[in-house]
């Protein structure tokens, strides 16, 4: 008992690499996965701007089709593997938008919101599972523990289903 010191609460945020370096590294890592490579190609081809913003909780945000944000709390930064997977997810969303699969209008019927938004979400999570599995299989990234990370992100069921499906192929 007694591991937590409340005064740690106010320690300045961890020293992190610059935003440019974090984004560049994440894209380099993504390039090692076939699905990730496809996202990196998309970023280059469409001129997608990637930004980092300070947010209380980890967030990935796509306000415009060519602009994505990754946000996290400086007091509790996301791990590099989480950052890579968040980036993969939001870039997949950008791909959906580019392909014309857009979020329903605000006043669209609830059924449309449920159907389209859920389909988009499932596709995004499935893509993140693909990237996580492909990177996890590479010795270079053993320490990143991509599969553990995607589970921590709340996608336990999805990753189990994905692995099961891949096994059946």
């Amino acid at each position: 008992m007694g591991q937590s010191n409340l005064n740690d609460f106010f320690k300045p945020g961890q020293i992190l690499p610059s935003h440019v370096v974090m984004i560049k590294k994440a894209l380099e890592i993504l390039e090692h996965s076939p699905h990730g490579q496809q996202l990196v190609n998309f970023v280059e081809k469409k001129g997608i701007t990637i930004k980092i913003m300070p947010t209380p909780q980890p967030e990935a945000y796509l306000p415009e089709k060519n602009l994505v944000y990754i946000g996290f709390n400086k007091n509790k930064p996301v791990s590099p593997s989480c950052f890579v997977l968040m980036l993969a997810g939001v870039l997949r969303e950008a791909q959906q938008e580019a392909a014309g699969i857009k979020h329903p209008r605000l006043h669209a019927p609830l059924s449309e919101h449920v159907e389209v938004s859920m389909a988009k979400h499932e596709d995004k999570v499935w893509y993140m599972c693909a990237v996580a599995t492909e990177l996890n299989d590479q010795v270079t990234f053993t320490e990143y523990k991509f599969l553990d990370e995607i589970r921590k992100m709340g996608h336990n069921e999805a990753i189990d289903l994905y692995i099961e499906q891949e096994r059946k192929k």
Partner: peptide
């Protein structure tokens, strides 16, 4: 709150009407 994303995306700011300071989870 941006309602055109799923889940919705929100940020909170302090403001006096001209100055805006974003709450970022730090003190």
């Amino acid at each position: 709150v941006n309602y055109a994303t799923m889940p919705t995306f929100s940020l909170t700011y302090f403001s006096d009407g001209t100055d805006y300071i974003c709450l970022d989870g730090t003190a």
